[in-house]
Amino acid sequence: MGVKKRILVACGTAIATSTVVARKIEEELGKRGIEITTTQCKATEVPSKIEGYDLVVTTTMVSGTGDIPVIHTVSFLTGIGIDKDIEKIMEYLK
């Protein structure tokens, strides 16, 4: 395994939902034997924090992400479509 990939997890306020999303991603990828690190931030902080991350996962609209891939989803909260989003994340982290 190489260096752990880094995912920036954004939500409106970085208080609540991003915590749950970050944990679910770690848990789901962990089940598949992939270790990653996550950092939480507010959606508005994404442009200033994005450097050095491999992927952004967000529950709300974000902008200023440049070339870094973004997955905009609430699946980790609703439970609908988690597997599909995990596949997407794995594809981006390859």
Binding site: I15, A16, T17, T19, V20, R23, K24, L77, T78, G79
Partner: peptide
């Protein structure tokens, strides 16, 4: 606490 609580609640609602 909010992460734990929200995660628990979300799991109930799922």
């Amino acid at each position: 606490m909010i992460g734990d609580l929200l995660e628990t609640l979300i799991n109930v609602y799922q």
